[in-house]
Design a binder for these strands. Structure first.
Lengths: 224, 224
DNA sequence: CGACCATTTGATATGGATCAAGCGATGTGG
DNA sequence: CCACATCGCTTGATCCATATCAAATGGTCG
């Protein structure tokens, strides 16, 4: 009953490289993608999956009426596109110039048949994706200001490790429109909610792409 | 690019029982649940999972502000609660008196370590849950009337096999409020959209719990 | 039959979308 | 190095879909 699944941090504390990380490092080869370049398209065969070396990725689908829904952002270190289905459900693009490790799925699956820890890691990865998607579902049940607050906290958590100095300053690699399509609101609404949060001193907008969480507790309060 | 993931049928055509079905039949024991009885709660250890023998199940979470989000309905034959995570994320209740097969997860996992087809089935099951959840995400990006239409088509598909006579008459086991919490709208809105669909002759409301899809093509049109 | 709860229908309120204009940052060519 | 064009972001005004509040109707079970 005491539901505790409101926020998705997206980062499982990893002390040491997992069997999946090792397999990916062994099997994968590097490939660069330019800004807005497609990594794979929806409905393509999911023969390969990816690990972000540098840059950022958005996974999305364009609905029939033209609207776009971003299902996830992937940050350096994240693995994505590892679908248990035959084909990719979503498309993926580089948000900026980015570098990926490209991994052949079958190779990994064959290794997993022999290596139990790897099989367990694959299972855990899908579990994680499922968890992420379920959190996204909960997000879409909230008001616009809550969605923005949740998004900021999520990004803060996921980028915490590469911030040594100011732990509450987060760099947003994506545009307002990207954020809007992730939160299923308009970019105008994202803007308004950000200024509203700034007016209540919950955050500070250093530049458009750099935001300081001034009152993390207050933000967490509003998403409960 | 040609995104084809708008609708989720929830039913993989199964010619013969899968390895998972067989394992479940071997390991599981039967248990009855009364109306609205909790099968498991969010945050409980996910040591067991379930297969619906008869009756219907809702999987849901209650958000902090009291609203409820139903993540899925499970029908006879469906397996649910097989989380790759340590603990259940959602709660599950019987919608009516229902009978379940209760399966010990570890037992199945151990079998899967020896039996490749079973391991593949487990993987496929999680894939299916992920797919279902992603479809639900897309659903929440639509207008209220589209959501209702999608829901009706989905229920029509999922119950097709146990309708011999009128293939377009569907029995809804759940209340309007349940439907509303699944579609993330109010029950009033569900009512209104149903009467709207009836007025346009897309459906007929035989009774509140029995709906006839009179113009399936028209419904599919409006959800594209 | 009567009580109770679910459902439908109606009236009003409101959060966010839409339409539109201003502003700011970034880059380009003179 | 500056004028200017461009694109993304913010702010403002209005509109609309759905929520909310409220009442009427219907269905179910004692």
């Amino acid at each position: 009953m005491a539901t505790r699944n409101s926020l998705y941090s997206g980062r499982i504390d990893k002390k040491e490289p997992s069997a999946l990380d090792i397999a990916v490092g062994r099997i994968g080869f590097r490939k660069r993608f330019g800004i807005n370049e497609e990594i794979y398209g929806a409905n393509e065969r999911a023969d390969y999956f990816y690990k972000v070396v540098s840059g950022y990725v958005r996974s999305y689908t364009v609905v029939e009426d033209g609207r776009r829904l971003i299902a996830a952002f992937y940050l350096p270190g994240d693995i994505f596109g590892l679908e248990p289905t035959e084909r990719h459900l979503f498309s993926a693009e580089a948000i900026f110039d980015a570098e990926m490790l490209v991994i052949n799925r079958n190779e990994v699956m064959q290794s997993a048949a022999r290596e139990n820890t790897l099989a367990r890691d694959l299972w855990a990865h899908v579990a994680n994706e499922l968890h992420r998607t379920q959190s996204h579902l909960l997000l879409l049940n909230k008001s616009a200001s809550e969605r923005v607050a949740i998004f900021l906290l999520e990004m803060g958590d996921r980028t915490r490790h590469d911030r040594t100095r100011h732990r509450d300053e987060i760099g947003l690699p994506m545009s307002r429109q990207d954020i809007a399509d992730y939160l299923a609101v308009t970019s105008e609404t994202v803007s308004r909610m950000l200024t509203k949060l700034e007016n209540t001193s919950a955050i500070a907008l250093r530049t458009t792409r750099s935001i300081v969480l001034r009152d993390r507790a207050g933000l967490e309060q509003m998403v409960i």
